[in-house]
């Protein structure tokens, strides 16, 4: 009787861990998506910066804000784009760190689940013998 309750407990534990693991995996997938988005934005911003660098001094530059085009100074626009690139790069780095963390957690969870499964199996084998 005691062994059956122990098994039930182990199974509950296993279930909890499995839930945690799936949550972690979801987080990782989300992280991947966000990262993809940021990488695309980074590429776009770099393109813009290149084009802005190629413009001559007197060129008129506008920024689309909502429905209106607002005239901007070329230097200001340039600075804005640079800042944006910096921000995105920092964000990407942060996401990378996050991802590593998540993956470590995932691996440890996987190990734990594996061990739990083994224990349950050995329990069941013992029961079958008895």
């Amino acid at each position: 009787m005691g062994s059956s309750t122990a098994i039930r407990e182990l199974q509950r534990d296993l279930e909890n861990k499995a839930n945690d693991l799936s949550k972690l995996q979801k987080d990782i997938a989300k992280n991947h998506q966000v990262r993809k988005k940021y990488t695309i934005q980074l590429g776009e911003n770099e393109l813009v910066l290149k084009e802005l660098d190629l413009l001559n001094e007197g060129a008129n530059v506008y920024k689309l804000i909502g429905p209106v085009l607002v005239k901007q100074d070329l230097a200001e626009a340039n600075a804005n784009v640079r800042k944006r690139i910096e921000y995105i790069s920092a964000e990407l780095k942060r996401l990378d760190g996050n991802l590593q963390d998540l993956e470590e957690k995932q691996n440890s969870k996987k190990d734990a689940i594996f061990k739990l499964q083994q224990r349950i199996q050995s329990f069941q084998a013992g029961k079958a013998k008895a």
């Binding site: 393109l47 084009e51 802005l52 530059v61 506008y62 920024k63 085009l69």
Partner: peptide, 20 residues
């Protein structure tokens, strides 16, 4: 008016636009 991306537009001539 050429869209450079990220909401930035630049006023360009046809020739410059083709370059972009």
């Amino acid at each position: 008016m050429v869209l450079l991306g990220e909401g930035y537009y630049a006023e360009r001539t046809a020739k410059q636009t083709v370059e972009i």
